[in-house]
Design a protein around this nucleic acid. Structure first.
Length: 267
DNA sequence: CTGGGGAAGGGGCCC
DNA sequence: GGGGCCCCTTCCCCA
């Protein structure tokens, strides 16, 4: 994921963009949350189990999926779900939900069309798109067509007024706009964040709270992802592998560094 | 130079 | 629809 869009830090107010016209209210976290506690008790993740970082599959840059990595394609067997995330539903379920919100991508009209047509000539292709009249022999074929073409062309597009990004849902756009408005402000240092939980993570840098402990050494981390990266250092076979020299790395960035240093071009 | 830690970002999913 | 949480990724810094 490119970081070109990452929100700049605005410690210097002179450099801070003028978001005063924005309508999102600023959220100020009470200082009681900083020192008064109770700091929310974050249950120790199941990562503490010995299977948490058992490396099995190794990614190379050529085999890496585009981000984000789906849970079911996790390079480490049993790894993500062991970190407390519920396993995702089967792909057949997500395909119809992820791209069209909670509504079914097939309208009532489509449902009628889906019923078996009486015309014997239409027997072979009985699923017809209500938008372009293109016919498909299978329901999944029609579904795929609608998601990739017709629906994408006809559904509303929500554009960000601060940048050129577009979203298919208003909710996604609103979430994105927060990255411009930065409504969550740290009362200690004044740094602003797009979401409350980002601020909470930032507050840990002030409090020193590190709820994520490594089961194999004494280290603890404030961020779960950093613990996950750390766990790789305990593994003999790292998660990311150079496709040329087979050397493995604990982080993709290290693999990229390695490749950019000339290993891959030398062969 | 390399590897690792710290911090922070966005999008997606679930409730 | 919004909040909370998760995962992945990236950048910076340091040993």
């Amino acid at each position: 994921m490119p970081r070109s869009f990452l929100v700049k830090k605005h410690f210097n107010s002179a450099k801070k963009p003028n978001y005063s016209e924005l309508d999102s209210p600023t959220v100020l976290i009470s200082p009681y949350l900083y020192k008064g506690f109770p700091v929310p008790v974050i249950p120790q993740p199941e990562i503490l189990s010995s299977v948490a970082y058992n490396p099995i599959t190794v990614w190379t840059t050529s085999s890496l999926p585009l981000s984000p990595l789906p849970n079911d394609l996790s390079p480490i067997s049993g790894y993500p779900s062991s970190l407390g995330r519920v396993s995702p539903p089967p792909l057949s379920d997500t395909s119809s939900k992820d791209h069209s919100g909670s509504e079914s991508p097939i309208s009532d009209e489509d449902e009628r069309i889906h019923t078996k047509l009486t015309d014997p000539h239409a027997e072979a292709e009985k699923f017809q798109c209500s938008l372009c009249n293109k016919s498909y022999s299978t329901y999944s074929g029609l579904l795929k067509h609608k998601q990739l073409h017709c629906d994408a062309q006809t559904r509303k597009s929500f554009s960000c007024k601060y940048c050129e990004k577009e979203y298919v849902s208003l909710g996604a756009l609103k979430m994105h706009i927060r990255t411009h408005t930065l409504p969550c402000v740290c009362k200690i240092c004044g740094k602003a964040f797009s979401r409350p939980w980002l601020l909470q993570g930032h507050i840990r840098t002030h409090t020193g709270e590190k709820p994520f402990s490594c089961p194999h050494c004494s280290r603890a981390f404030a961020d779960r992802s950093n613990l996950r990266a750390h766990l790789q250092t305990h593994s003999d076979v790292k998660k990311y592998q150079c496709k040329n020299c087979s050397k493995t790395f604990s982080r993709m960035s290290l693999l990229h560094k390695h490749e950019e240093s000339g290993c891959c071009v030398a062969h």
